[in-house]
Amino acid sequence: MRRQVPLILCFAFGIVMALTEFSPHPFSQWLNEEIIDWTLVIGPFALVLAVATLVQSHWTRIRRRSEYWQYSFLVFIGMAAMVLIGIPLGQRHEAFVWLFRYAQVPMDATMFSLLAFFIASAAYRAFRARTLEATLLLAAALIVMIGNAPVGDLIWNTIIPFEDNLPSTARQWILDNPNLSARRGIILGISLGVISQSIRIILGIERSYLGGVEGD
């Protein structure tokens, strides 16, 4: 029974949700929205457990004096500050907005900006022209980069007065033809994979997400 009920519900809801996609009937639309709303209800309950594990893991680090244990205090300070200001004063209060705008957003932006350096290091490795494929990749990347920079067309038109704006035209061709074809191929594969995986789950063939098969 421990497995049967979830599997029957999974099948029933899987079929119902798939059918509602093809029906414009008001009940169908209502049912679709309602079931999606139900999933939101589960979130807060799981969040309590999740926050408990977060507190537990950082408390353990402090207790055991693990490496860099001092930083765990920052987690508790940050969490307490957001909760103590956010819950009694509300999310629109000046203090809460200040914390969000001048603490969280700059920290997020800092992490995001690291991406530029990581792209440079990854590109350096990927574009080393050691094989034919890597050389093609390097050539395509150079064309796209030159085509993307407005100065690329300017330099081309000044030095070679033949076929105006060739770098941006070549860039567009690469993006519209080889790039888009490859992307569509991958998207088709992903879509078929998603349907196939969904069928396996709906039919109860794929059950590992339920936590194994023991205990029926």
Binding site: L7, I8, L9, F11, I15, V16, G204, I205, E214
Partner: peptide, 23 residues
């Protein structure tokens, strides 16, 4: 599947009954 005791046809029939009732 290791330890599989719940066949797909049974699941399909029970699931279909629930779906049809709801709809």
């Amino acid at each position: 599947m290791k330890g599989q005791r719940f066949s797909c046809p049974v699941l399909v029939v029970q699931g279909l009954v629930i779906s049809l009732l709801v709809l």
